[in-house]
Nucleic acid binder design. Structure first.
Lengths: 213, 213
DNA sequence: ACCTGAACACCGTTCAAGT
DNA sequence: ACCTGAACACCGTTCAAGT
């Protein structure tokens, strides 16, 4: 009994994935993270409430899309750090990969970070866990630079390490948002915005290499 | 002919302000920036389409609320910088005031910054102008520190100054969002989150005082 | 000029029903 | 088990109408 024997309403048998794909396509095409559940269903070729068989509600679908995005982001950042023994180079590469991901997928990035924020700051445990995983890549690089003596961070002092990781994360997150929103372009009079982003990253990282008072 | 002579449907005569106040109250009470226009009207005690006499659409009302917020934010940051001759102290105070505003008014902050982002990065000219005004406070402080020699920033090199201003803005914006979202609290194991925020700011500012490679 | 009430096209979600 | 169609309560926006 092949799948052809099922009525066409049973579709491809993996509606969950089809819905996630449709949502991703909408994000990429419209640049807006706030699509309607009914449109996702329309795109997947099912009725407007078929999604409820696979996701508890719209929020659950948005979360699933965001979680998938965190996986992709982590792949980019860890690939960027891969094989770079120099902590300065590694940290710079991670930052560029992070910002590059946000700029390449603005709607997805805003869905991942901006929407948890929009909902009173209570991100789901799964999203919090995914975000923590992403921070771990930066954490390892900072620790590596601290141990090698390239960064003036006390590897034995958790507060110092955490402050540095949060600083790096905040800077890059803010920089990504500003870039997506066009603030960077508005600020830059001449020369490509990429130079400014690189300058900002370099200035921050150089700051890490000098003694902290 | 006093206002009492008008039918009560004419209300207080300043529905525009009443709607903005109602929107502000909803932001403060719910912690959500995405309220409905109809609820704002309900709160102001008018029919659900009375707002259209004062705002072109929901977007226009949201923008008006955001613009008012930028005015308040600028008041806080410039007050924080006021009278501080030392650029390091001034920059630190500005950063704390900025983050303090965001934490005290999370929904308003997200409306101001998160929503322009959500709408495909095209903030209104008025909002862009208001945001530019806010950057100016930081710009002056950085320039001041560059001229006094406290910051290793070349006051004659616009690219260097801009990179520093954007770095400071990105860091503080990201830090505010992370704090609102609870990421900071999740990262901190022991001790108040405020310490971490202060540590991050200090680390960044100290980094500014050392020579750039 | 300023506001109301009915109306339209959408949305998220639920429920009974089909195969 | 998986999907559909009708239904409900909402929403943003428009339009004719009231004072």
């Amino acid at each position: 009994m092949s799948t052809e024997d099922f009525p066409s309403t049973y579709h491809h048998g993996d509606l969950r994935r089809a819905l996630l794909d449709a949502a991703g396509a909408i994000l990429a095409e419209t640049g807006q993270w706030d699509f309607s559940l009914r449109e996702v269903a329309r795109r997947a070729g099912v009725s407007h409430n078929a999604p409820y068989r696979h996701f508890a509600d719209k929020e659950a679908l948005l979360s699933a899309v965001a979680i998938a995005g965190f996986g992709v982001l982590r792949g980019h950042t860890s690939a960027a750090a891969e094989g770079k023994a120099d902590a300065i180079e590694a940290l710079s590469a991670i930052g560029q990969a992070y910002i590059g991901f946000g700029v390449a997928n603005p709607a997805l990035y805003l869905l991942m970070f901006g929407r948890g924020l929009a909902t009173a700051g209570s991100a789901s445990p799964e999203i919090a866990e995914a975000a923590r995983y992403n921070r771990a890549v930066v954490n390892e690089t900072i620790l590596s630079g601290a141990r090698s003596g390239q960064f003036t961070v006390d590897a034995e002092n958790p507060a110092d390490v955490v402050a540095t990781v949060v600083a790096a994360g905040s800077l890059v997150h803010g920089l990504t948002l500003f870039t997506i929103d066009g603030v960077i372009e508005r600020v830059v009079d001449k020369g490509p915005a990429n130079n400014l982003v690189a300058d900002v990253l370099r200035r921050f990282i150089v700051g890490l290499t000098y003694p902290q008072g």
